[in-house]
Amino acid sequence: MFHSVHHPGRLPLGPRGQAVVLDAPGTSRLVEHTPQRPGPGEARVDVHAVGICGSDRDVHLGRRPAPYVRYPLTPGHEWSGTVAAVGEGVSASLIGRKVVGEGLRNCETCARCRAGETVLCAAGYQETGFTLPGAMAPTLVLPARLLHTLPPDADLTAAALLEPAAHATAAVLKACPLPGMRAAVIGSGTLGLLAAQLLGAFSPSELTVVGTNPGRADLTHRFGATAYRTWDRASGLSDFDVVIDAVGGTSTASAATSLLRPGGRLVLTGIPAQGAEGLDPARVVARQLSIGTAFGASAGAWSYAVRAFSSARLTPLELVTHQLGIDEFERAMELTDSGGPHGGKVLLLPRTS
Rank of each mutant, 00 (worst) to 15 (best):
A246Y: 10
G264C: 03
G236R: 10
R261A: 14
L260I: 00
A273T: 12
L266A: 04
R261D: 02
F240W: 08
T226S: 14
V243E: 13
A246H: 11
A234Q: 06
T252D: 10
P272F: 02
T226L: 01
F223I: 01
T252M: 07
G263L: 02
P272V: 00
T250Q: 12
L237Q: 05
S235R: 12
S238Y: 02
V243Q: 14
R222D: 13
A246V: 11
A253E: 10
A246C: 13
F240A: 04
R229D: 02
T269S: 14
V247F: 01
R229P: 08
A227C: 09
R233T: 08
V242T: 14
A225H: 08
Y228N: 02
S251R: 15
T230S: 01
A234K: 07
V242L: 14
R229I: 00
T252K: 11
F223M: 10
A234N: 04
L260C: 05
L237H: 06
L266P: 09
A255Q: 14
A234L: 01
A255E: 14
G264F: 03
R265C: 11
F240I: 01
D241V: 08
A225P: 07
S251H: 15
R265F: 03
R229G: 02
S254A: 15
G264L: 00
L237M: 05
A227G: 13
L260R: 07
S238V: 02
